[in-house]
């Protein structure tokens, strides 16, 4: 057993391949985790509905593809490249707008009246919203897994005969997530609205005294978080090619884990957390066993938090006296 394990571990191409797979799915997790962490940073709410918002985004993407006539069996082969590119572009515009608007409306209707309520009240409301979203998803796509048209070719970009595989899909995931993360970092760090966000996160009262419209800032945060979930859902649908009304739960759980692992409220932390989880998942599956993957992810999480109680990049909170 052990020699085999060694032989596998030192199979470099295999290890590299697993790293590619792991980092790609990690990037997707990170994209969802960003929405969690931004909302948490500003209103200290674990938004359990975020994963299901992501699921609804995928449902909309599927509906758009159906409208373009790409969802029927055999439609991909006959479809022109123009219509495929058009459909993807349409998704990348419509779905983030839809998710952002939905997230913002939910905040306005459900969470805003609870800003002063005990802290568990918005949490439970978020669970309620997640139930409603799931029910909507159930009506939208039905109880079973649904195929999302596989419009992106699986051609290996490193050459057809290369041992290592890096396909167009991997490129798509990286190509969408990395610029978004950079844009987000720039937005939060260097724009005045971003500055207002950080101020509100630090101390809402002081921010308001400084003339910041905190409600507007919170609303913007929900908009941005929702839009990220929207981008994530389109990329996810194109990458994994399956949609079901339950997919928000598992992905949301991992994203939440990633957010906390990186230090909740911390934007680079969420990205790092997502990548770590993706890697642990892939390597755990490869070298230990697929049934243990989730257990390993959570065990790693517990161990990291025991040694770094505020997450990987979270600032050590000083006790305010």
């Amino acid at each position: 057993m052990l020699p085999i394990l060694f032989a596998e571990a030192f199979n470099w191409t295999n290890l590299q391949q697993q790293c590619i797979t792991g980092l790609t799915s990690g990037a997707l997790i990170a994209l969802i985790a960003l929405g969690y962490t931004m909302v948490y940073g500003i209103v200290e709410l674990i938004n359990f509905a975020h994963g299901d918002l992501f699921m609804l985004g995928s449902c909309l993407a599927l509906t758009i593809f159906t409208a373009f006539g790409l969802a029927q069996p055999g439609a991909i082969d006959s479809a022109s490249n123009v219509s495929i590119v058009l459909a993807i572009a349409c998704c990348l515009v419509a779905v983030p707008i839809f998710c952002a608007g939905l997230n913002r409306s939910v905040d306005y209707v459900v969470y805003r009246p609870l800003r002063t309520a005990p802290r568990l009240a918005p949490l439970v409301s978020a669970i309620g919203v997640s139930f409603i979203f799931m029910n909507v998803g159930l009506f939208w796509v039905g109880p079973q897994d649904v195929n999302f048209p596989d419009v992106i070719q699986d051609r290996n970009l490193l050459g057809d005969d290369a041992v290592l595989r890096f396909t167009l899909k991997n490129l798509l995931v990286v190509g969408v997530t990395v610029p978004l993360m950079i844009a987000l970092t720039v937005f939060v760090k260097f724009t005045s609205l971003g500055k207002a966000m950080r101020a509100t996160a630090q101390n809402p009262t002081a921010a308001r005294l400084m003339g910041i419209n905190t409600e507007f800032v919170i609303g913007t945060t929900f908009l941005v978080g929702g839009a990220l979930a929207g981008f994530g859902s389109v990329v996810y649908a194109l990458y994994v090619n399956t949609i079901s009304y339950q997919m928000g739960f598992q992905n949301g759980l991992y994203a939440f884990t990633a957010a906390v692992l990186g230090g909740i409220g911390n934007i680079p932390g969420a990205v790092l957390g997502g990548l770590v989880i993706g890697l642990v998942q892939a390597l755990g599956t490869a070298y230990i066993g697929a049934t243990w993957t989730s257990a390993i992810v959570f065990a790693v999480l517990i161990v990291i938090l025991v040694f770094r109680p505020s997450g990987l990049l979270g600032a050590r909170v000083r006790e305010k006296v």
Binding site: V110, L114, A117, A121, P122, V124, S125, I127, G128, V129, S130, F131, I132, F133, M134, N135, V136, L138
Partner: peptide
Amino acid sequence: LFLFGVVLIVMM
């Protein structure tokens, strides 16, 4: 699920 959600939100 829908009813659950509405009840939880209205209660909160």
